[in-house]
Amino acid sequence: MVIITNNPMVRDKFDTLFIDGAYADVLASVKKAVIDKHWTLLTHPLSGSLKPNETYYRTVFLDNTHLQYIDMQSLEYIEAAIRVYDKFMRDKPRPQWPAKVLADFAFIDFDIAQSTLQRMGQDATRLTKGGGS
């Protein structure tokens, strides 16, 4: 499993494929991985009710088993998420948030990621940095 994220809080806790960029860059790299590497989405790319022109952070979980084909369901979900993202940003770009608000957005994204790991029945320590094999 691979975690693609631009959230430093998630990066600091788990082994991730960290994107030093924006929400849109996370969605773009997820799409690229689905197409080029034939990876499969494990989580919904629009998790949480925070709007794409509101939160800065995005964390997506993928199965990095290389399939013989592109998983069309994964492609549909990520493409729909990119369309939703573009629509929101076109309407109203994200404000310049104060550091405190950014930290809160990071925390919510982190918490949803952590709850999701629990739901997956994944041993979070296995993915935790320095926490196991």
């Binding site: 989405l41 494990l42 989580t43 919904h44 949480g48 949803i112 999701t116 739901r119």
Partner: peptide, 8 residues
């Protein structure tokens, strides 16, 4: 309404 697609 979960995040994990398998749960959905």
């Amino acid at each position: 309404e979960t995040v994990y697609l398998q749960d959905k």
